[in-house]
Design a protein around this nucleic acid. Structure first.
Lengths: 184, 207
DNA sequence: ATCTTACTTTAGAAAGC
DNA sequence: GCTTTAAAAAGTAAGAT
């Protein structure tokens, strides 16, 4: 029986190209909730409520979408942004190819952990654990190439993956390693 | 060819100048922090290794010096907090912390996190507490570590809470405010930690 | 004393300083 | 390197009540 690690995607970061030479000033003027402070940051911020997400739109036409809880939501958010901009009369690609750049997920091993023991068990050369600076132990994996933050409560955060599957694999591998070490 | 020779001289002059600056900076900080010569020397060795491995690139000499000192203190079992180190450095705590993590990884300094017990002698001395209370505080910390209730907690907060409890048990009571000040944590943190320690270690505290 | 807000860490893209 | 976005984990901190 497989254990339930309660793996949940918390945030998806994706990027696309929706056109070229986008007139950010026009968007800033016509769209009420758009934020644009070129002196502070070159991208214009547009937020969608359903699904909830934030899009950073650049003059080049490149777009970064963050905050989605799933890859599908990231796509939906991008479609909405494209629609809003096209309705302003600005030429855009209606169905841009969206690329997932990073997925942040949370999980729970369900048991308290001794981070000092884990630091020794996994090898001081592979982990970073500085409780004076941060309560989580930082573990960088090679097989899925992700970074995992492991907490004393048994909960963790997996980030850096491009597929939802990376987070699942990472959690299962860590559970195996800790079990083998008798630390779970 | 003569150019090449002059260039070498110029580079070695700069290298020596930087090393001299780093060592004087190291001495200045070590003195201000009241660290023994052995720790200064360990820090100097760490700094030289960092230079040999070109770890200074993109980093300030002062930041690497501060990180080397922080590492040396931990290695010697007489840790200083990042805040204490930062107090005497031009570099802020955040930068010293990340530089420390970087050089520790690159130089293979496999250091376990600081045990709260390592802060007890210094904090107790600053509070004028007896060796008896000191021993009691370390005893409490050992039990806390065995019962796995220090994972993720700041070492200074745990040390402060243990000292606070020990001072009461030993009849040399110090207030949370006094302990908080020497440990560099807030009273709220001591309160949270000591309640947890007392409860899970079954210690009765009569205020 | 307790609540709220906020900052620490991780990853990644975007354009420009 | 920094700037901006979003989100989780848990500890600590600061200001308000």
């Amino acid at each position: 029986m497989k254990k339930d690690y309660k793996i949940k995607i918390e945030n998806v970061v994706a990027s696309t190209q929706i056109g070229e030479n986008i007139d950010l000033n026009k968007i800033a003027k016509e769209v009420k909730d758009a934020e644009y402070k070129p002196k502070q940051f070159p991208g214009l911020v547009l937020r969608t409520k359903e699904p909830k997400a934030a899009a950073l739109i650049f003059r080049s036409g490149k777009v970064v979408c963050t905050g989605s809880k799933s890859v599908e939501d990231a796509n939906r958010a991008v479609r909405q942004v494209v629609k809003i901009i096209s309705e302003l009369g600005i030429p855009v690609i209606l169905e841009p190819e969206v690329k997932v750049q990073n997925i942040v997920a949370s999980a729970d091993l369900g048991v308290d952990l001794n981070l000092n023991a884990i630091a020794i068990g996994l090898g001081l050369e592979n982990i970073e654990y500085e409780p004076e600076q941060f309560p989580g132990l930082v573990y960088r994996l090679d097989k899925p190439r992700v970074v995992v933050l492991i907490f004393g409560s048994g909960k963790m955060v997996v980030t850096g993956g491009k597929n939802p599957e990376d987070a699942v694999k990472a959690v299962e591998r860590i559970a195996e390693e800790l079990s083998a070490l008798g630390l779970m | 060819r003569l150019r090449k020779w002059q260039r070498r001289i110029r580079i070695s002059n700069a290298t020596e100048r930087n090393l001299a600056f780093a060592l004087s900076e190291l001495d200045r900080m070590a003195s201000a922090l009241g660290l023994p010569k052995s720790v200064r020397e360990t820090a100097a060795v760490i700094y030289r290794k960092a230079v040999d491995k070109n770890l200074i690139r993109g980093r300030s000499i002062e930041g690497v010096v501060a990180a080397a000192l922080y590492a040396a203190c931990r290695q010697a079992g007489v840790p200083r907090t990042l805040d204490e180190i930062a107090t005497y450095s031009r570099v802020d705590r955040k930068e010293i912390g990340r530089t420390y993590r970087f050089i520790a990884r690159e130089l293979g300094l496999k250091l376990m996190p600081t045990s709260p017990a390592d802060y007890v002698p210094r904090f107790c001395a600053a509070l004028g507490l007896s060796g008896d209370v000191q021993k009691k505080a370390i005893e409490i910390i050992k039990k806390a570590e065995e019962k796995e209730l220090t994972s993720g907690r700041g070492p200074t907060g745990v040390a402060a809470a243990a000292i606070y409890i020990a001072s009461i048990l030993g009849g040399e009571r110090r207030t949370q405010r006094e302990v908080a000040e020497v440990a560099g944590v807030t009273e709220v943190t001591i309160r949270n930690r000591y309640k947890e320690l007392a409860e899970r270690l079954g210690i009765e505290i009569i205020l």
